[in-house]
């Protein structure tokens, strides 16, 4: 790995955890600052945006609910790519990425469910309904929790990596189900209004704040993801060093 340092920078160099730590350490402050600024702008615009004529001020919860829901699915796709990275390309950081993303995904999914629940209470008159969209997102939440349990079940990361990757890939099936659930089933949840083939149905005065806060939360997700990945790399190094320490204790005693 040492000769990689003398060669010009390539994407593959990121595979080296040391290299990753170095690079991400440089990028992280900028990314974090950008995430904060963009999110703040998006939310500020959201508060300045006109109220919905039917929903009143309640509609503002959309500016966090929709980004949370969007990230809950994007996070899963990031994990699915990481799973491919583990199984196909044997990328050494792929497993770290998957393990680090799972708790973030679970939190964003829980937030999406909670904000949706708070939004739904005045609109639908109930905290929860078992319709296609809500149920499939809840199943996504359960899958995140299952993956968290799986990635932490074994002390040895190499052994749990493959299992977690396989489960992640099998679970990808849920993502299109969530996406199209509002079209396949008759539900209380409103149909898609931004990502449509025939263009968004949402008015542009609401659309722009939504897009900007979505971008802000996406940047925030990647900031968190890189931070947790770094923590995971350090955790593995600490564990490796402790194993080394155990070995060295033996050698000292033999000497």
């Amino acid at each position: 790995m040492s000769d990689a340092a003398t060669q010009p920078m390539r994407f593959a160099d990121l595979a080296n955890p040391t290299r990753f730590l170095e690079l991400s350490g440089k990028v992280l402050p900028w990314l974090g600052a950008a995430a904060l600024i963009v999110t703040a702008i998006g939310l500020a615009m959201g508060f300045a945006a006109p109220e919905d004529y039917q929903q009143g001020s309640t509609v503002r919860i959309m500016y966090i609910h929709v980004p949370f829901a969007w990230i809950s699915m994007m996070c899963y796709m990031v994990m699915a790519v990481a799973a491919l990275g583990t199984l196909v390309w044997k990328h050494p950081l792929a497993d770290v990425s998957l393990k680090a993303a799972a708790p973030i995904g679970a939190v964003f999914t829980a937030l999406a469910l909670a904000t949706g629940s708070i939004w739904g209470r005045p609109m639908w008159g109930t905290w929860w309904v078992w319709d296609g969209r809500l149920t499939s997102v809840f199943v996504l939440f359960l899958m995140y929790l299952g993956l968290i349990a799986l990635t932490r079940a074994l002390d040895d990361p190499a052994r749990s990596a493959r299992a977690a990757a396989i489960v992640t890939l099998v679970g990808v099936i849920n993502i299109p189900i969530i996406k199209f659930s509002v079209e396949w089933w008759n539900t209380l949840h409103q149909p898609a209004s931004v990502m449509r083939l025939d263009g968004p149905t949402i008015h542009s005065s609401l659309l722009w704040p939504l897009l900007i806060s979505a971008l802000g939360f996406t940047l925030m997700f990647f900031t968190f993801h890189i931070m947790t990945m770094r923590a995971e790399i350090w955790r593995r190094r600490v564990s490796a060093m402790r194993r080394m320490m155990a070995k060295r204790a033996d050698r000292d005693a033999a000497a």
């Binding site: 402790r242 320490m245 155990a246 060295r248 204790a249 000292d252 005693a253």
Partner: peptide, 9 residues
């Protein structure tokens, strides 16, 4: 003769 392992699992 294992004084250094106390904190290891």
């Amino acid at each position: 003769a294992l004084p250094s392992v106390a904190s290891l699992p």
